[in-house]
Amino acid sequence: MSGVSKAKKLTREDELLQQFSNNVTARNSATFYGNAAIVAILPIWLFYRIQQLDLVSNAILFTAVSAVSTYLLAMAYARVQFVTKHKLAQKREQAINREVALEFGDRKVSRDERDERVLCRKNEVAQYEATHYSIFYNNSVFLSLVVFLGFYLFRSLAPGLNYILSVGGSAGLVAFLSTGK
C-alpha cells in the first residue's frame, strides 16, 4: 500500500518537475510545430505572387526552407515561452492566490493543499499566457522581418536567393533573438 502511495507521490513530483523544467511537453511541442509550420509557409504566397517564383519548379526549395524555418521558429517559441513563463508566474502570484481563496471559500483546507493548488494554478496560467505570448511575439517579428528583407533589403536579388535569404534569415534571426532574453 505504502509502495503505491510512494509511486503516486513520485509521479506528482515528476509532474511538477516537468511543469517547471525547460523541457517542452509533447502537447506544447505539437502546438509550436503546428504554428511554426503555418507561419513558415505563409511567405510562399508573397514570393509566388509578387516575386513570380514558380511553385512547381521551386517545390524542393520551398519545402526545404519551410522545414528549416519551422524548426527554427518552434525553437524560438520554446525559448521565449520558457523565459516569459517564469516572469509571468511571479506577476500572477497575487491574482492566483485570490482566485484559489475564492475557489475554496469557507472550506477548511490544509496549508500544503492550498499552496500546491496555488502552485499548479500559477503554473497553468503562466504556461498558457507564455505560450500565446511567445507565438504572438515570434510570429510578429518573423513576418515583419520577411517583408522587410524580402521586399526592401533583398528586393533586387534573384527571387530564389531572395526567398532563401529573407525567409531562412528571418527564422534564423528570430531563433537568435530568442536566445538573448
Binding site: 507561419v39 505563409l42 498558457y128 500565446h132 504572438f136 510570429n139 513576418l143
Partner: peptide, 12 residues
C-alpha cells in the same frame, strides 16, 4: 497572416 498574430495575442 493576421490570425497567426491576432489570435495568440487575443488569448494572451
Amino acid at each position: 497572416s493576421m490570425p497567426s498574430i491576432l489570435l495568440p495575442y487575443f488569448l494572451y
